[in-house]
Amino acid sequence: MPTNEQRRAAAKRKLERQLERREQRAKRARLITIIASVTGVLVVVGAVVATVIITNKDSANTASASTTTSADPGAPQPAADGKLPPFAAPAGLGQDCQYPAAGEASRKVNPPRTGKIPMDEAEISVSMATDQGNIGLMLNNAQAPCTANSFASLAGQGYFNDTPCHRLTTSDSLSVLQCGDPTGQGTGGPGYEFANEYPTNQYQPDNPALQQPVLYPRGTLAMANAGPGTNGSQFFLVYKDSQLPPNYTVFGTIDETGLATLDKIAGAGVEGGGQDGPPATKVQVKTIQLD
């Protein structure tokens, strides 16, 4: 039976192969673009990249977050019906992702690769194993490439392995399980930060709609933050339709097996009988691995 170290090494090699394949596809795409421009063929694709997130700095209450990137003036306007705005696929060969250093890492880890992140692989399948059951995730690389890139990098390095899910909320407006902090205190991170994506960047920075709640539907995987440009490693899993301002990066979905696991955890309630705090049933993440 392979050891934990061997499994981590295998996951890291798999991630490196995936990134190499993406880069090769991106190079081919650049070559095609150059040829097309020489022959006078020009295709213009309008686009916008978007983001959404919850607090990763002592999350005793519902997070406050704000936009970290400017919206495209030509982007579709957010829906006025309280739903997340429609997503428009970004133009070009990839999103420019940067991960500036910020604070001390809760667990030794290397930052993700920076620069243009290819988005041709639209989805990335991930398995999250906990001591309460498995949670299957599908990362939306096309919609939130910088977030998916960071999450995959951390997973490949074993950053999430043997860490607790430190927060459960069970109110009518917010029903999530929050994980991703090795310290288990809601204050930890990977030693770097990055900007919001969908749906935050679908809005102009001064749009009052950024302060109005929208629906984060059951089965949403999103990031937690503590304000502009403070995404790190903490993420939350929405097990029941929730209302949040559109300041939390949506970067994937949860499968039916995962939702059943979350329902079981939520059914036991919050420690001490409240609606926001450590889950009464302790949840330990065993591993998060790319499939």
Results as ranks from 00 to 15, higher is better:
P2F: 14
E5W: 11
R8Y: 03
A9D: 15
K14L: 11
I34W: 07
V43P: 04
T51Y: 01
T55I: 02
T55A: 10
N61R: 15
A65H: 03
A65Q: 14
A79N: 08
L84G: 04
A88V: 12
G92K: 14
C97I: 03
A101I: 08
I117L: 07
I117C: 14
D120R: 06
E121M: 11
M128C: 14
T130V: 12
T130H: 11
I135Y: 00
L137E: 04
T147C: 13
N149K: 00
N149V: 04
S150H: 01
F151A: 06
L154K: 12
L154G: 10
A155V: 02
Y159M: 03
F160C: 15
C165H: 10
H166R: 11
R167G: 04
T169G: 02
T170F: 10
Q178I: 07
G180E: 01
T183P: 02
G184K: 05
Q185I: 15
Q185A: 15
N196C: 00
T200E: 01
Q204L: 11
P213D: 14
R218W: 04
G219F: 02
L221G: 10
T230H: 01
Q234F: 03
L237M: 13
Y239Q: 02
E256W: 00
T261W: 00
T261L: 00
K264V: 03
A266P: 02
V270D: 11
V270G: 14
E271L: 13
E271K: 14
T281L: 15
Q284D: 11
Q284G: 06
D291V: 12
